[in-house]
Simulated assay, not measured.
Amino acid sequence: MTDTRLDTLEIHIAQQQQAIDDLSEALALQQKDIERLKASLHRSDSRIAELEAGLPAAAVEKPPHY
């Protein structure tokens, strides 16, 4: 194998490794965002449930136009 071909393959492997590392970092950041958003959604759901529990029950009445 010629040195030029070996150098080309090493460069290619290094570029692939960099791409894999970049994708891995992006995935880790996205996973953190997903966990943060899940926690926020859970807090919002809990708060909505608390607010709904404090409301009076809906009366079953005919609308005024009947």
Rank of each mutant, 00 (worst) to 15 (best):
R36W: 08
D3A: 11
E10T: 07
E35S: 07
S44M: 08
L27K: 12
I34N: 05
L29V: 10
L29D: 13
D7Y: 06
R47C: 01
I11R: 12
Q31E: 11
G54C: 00
H12S: 15
D33W: 01
Q16K: 15
D3C: 09
L27W: 03
K62G: 00
E50Y: 01
T2F: 12
E61Y: 02
D22Y: 08
L27Q: 14
L41T: 06
A19Q: 14
I48C: 02
L41C: 02
L37P: 01
P63D: 10
K32E: 13
I48V: 12
H12G: 10
A26N: 07
H12V: 12
I11T: 13
E52P: 00
L27H: 06
V60P: 00
Q31P: 03
L23S: 10
S24Y: 14
M1W: 08
L29C: 07
Q17F: 02
H65Q: 05
V60A: 07
S46D: 01
D21V: 08
A49M: 02
Q18L: 14
A28S: 06
T2P: 09
A19M: 15
P63T: 05
P64S: 04
A59R: 05
G54N: 04
L23V: 07
A49W: 00
E61L: 09
L55I: 00
Q30F: 00
A53V: 02
L23M: 12
I48G: 00
L6C: 12
D45N: 11
V60L: 05
S46F: 03
D45G: 04
D3G: 11
Q18K: 15
R47W: 08
A28P: 01
P63R: 13
E35K: 07
L9N: 04
A59Y: 00
A59N: 05
L37I: 10
S40T: 13
A59V: 04
K38M: 09
L41A: 07
M1H: 10
D3Q: 13
T4N: 12
L23N: 14
Q31F: 05
D33C: 02
P63N: 06
R43W: 03
P64L: 06
L41F: 05
A49G: 02
D33I: 04
A57H: 01
E50G: 09
D3I: 14
Q16N: 09
K38T: 05
A14G: 00
L41V: 06
I48F: 13
D22W: 07
T4V: 10
G54A: 04
Y66S: 09
T4A: 14
Q17S: 11
A57S: 08
S44A: 11
E10H: 10
A49T: 00
Q15F: 12
E52N: 10
D22I: 08
I20V: 13
I11Y: 03
A58K: 04
E35N: 05
D21I: 09
E50W: 02
A59W: 00
A59I: 03
T2D: 05
T8A: 15
G54M: 07
D7N: 14
